[in-house]
């Protein structure tokens, strides 16, 4: 599987995953949404990281789970894209 490196595509799919799995009805999830406010707690974050492995072919290391990378959906997407570029042979 070729790792996904486009942060825009990653953002869209992350938002869709959050809406379908964690956020209650009516909760808005867009690229600027803080993860905590759209229902991503520690349990959901692990689900999100496993989704990244399945959907984007990217394994995000624990050391990348910093406060700034988890500030919003877009920040996490950017981090995933960077990890994908770094893992490119």
């Amino acid at each position: 599987m070729t790792p996904q490196k486009d942060p825009k595509i990653i953002t869209e799919q992350l938002c869709q995953f959050v809406r379908e799995n964690f956020a209650a009805e009516g909760v808005v999830c867009n690229e600027q949404s803080p993860l905590g406010e759209v229902g991503v707690d520690s349990f959901a974050l692990v689900e999100l990281l496993l989704f990244c492995e399945r959907a984007f072919g990217v394994r995000v290391p624990e050391s990348s789970m910093t406060r700034s990378n988890l500030a919003s959906v877009a920040a996490l997407a950017k981090c995933i894209a960077e990890v994908a570029r770094g893992s490119q042979p």
Partner: peptide
């Protein structure tokens, strides 16, 4: 235990 409810709503 882990709460399985969706978040941000009632």
């Amino acid at each position: 235990p882990h709460d399985m409810r969706r978040r941000g709503g009632n």
